[in-house]
Nucleic acid binder design. Structure first.
Lengths: 136, 136
DNA sequence: CTACAATCTGTAGTCACTACAGGTTCAAGA
DNA sequence: TCTTGAACCTGTAGTGACTACAGATTGTAG
């Protein structure tokens, strides 16, 4: 098990997170500041890699930076319980479900508009009519 | 049919769009600049009301400002065809469907995590394990 | 030793608002 | 008419989660 040392470019390629974003995560305190070379270039080890993968995975699941910070604090402090983590995840899950519901409504409304519209060369358009109706 | 004159506050209450947002829409050229009183207060008529309702309705359907501008230009120029409007709406509908799909994936992943987690007082947590796995 | 790729910092831009600060105008009551 | 206070004005800065530079420095392969 040799210690791997990664430049920011390599880390970026390995994780698919782009360089500016990595630096941004460091700046806002989400990703731990790594060691530096004499010249000031960042040098990451496997802990940095692990942390960034965690962040990327959480983002992929739609967690906000704020939520990730709180999960991450919990975990790195080593004080978390399974219960707490589960509860934060459930809260987020219900947010996601709310968003899905609202998008479904939009989808339905849009699909109805498209269906009602004749799609011809005229200006007699059900979509325009509906969007401009004066009823509030 | 009497000409109605509305202050920005009344317009805001009628449409549910807040005052700052109305001024913002004007600034970015989405909403036509209304007449002013001698003292400089905005005075809207029924055209302004109609236009703002249209904007609000489009935003409610998830159209971006850019999309609304382009729809709105088409319509106010009077050069639109039903076909064009329908096609823009369809493009947007397919964006919405893409978003729904991606949120569904999130939902599934999160639900699985929550289910696998025991939720106890221990630190043996399936969620943490999964999020910290080193597999990229 | 040179060339050039990679990295550095810092700032500004994105989207669609929202939230002030500090000033002016309007409308209703005395 | 005067006064009060609500409503309005402009302009700027902040939000979230990045992205896109500019201009300088460092690292490395040939």
């Amino acid at each position: 098990m040799k210690r791997q040392k990664l430049t920011i470019g390599t880390l970026s390629r390995e994780t698919g997170v782009n360089i500016e974003t990595i630096r941004y995560y460091e700046k806002i305190g989400l990703l731990a500041a790594p060691e530096r070379t004499e010249g000031g270039h960042r040098v990451y080890d496997s802990d940095g890699l692990k942390q960034l993968i965690f962040i990327r995975r959480c983002r992929g699941l739609g967690f906000s930076i704020e939520e990730i910070l709180s999960l991450s604090d919990l975990v790195t402090a080593g004080t978390y319980t399974c219960e707490e983590v589960q509860s934060k995840t459930e809260v987020h899950l219900s947010d996601v479900r709310t968003k899905i519901k609202s998008l479904r409504k939009m989808e339905h409304a849009l699909a109805t508009l498209v269906k009602e519209c004749e799609g011809g060369k005229t200006q007699d358009c059900a979509i325009v009519d509906t969007l401009f109706e004066l009823r509030v």
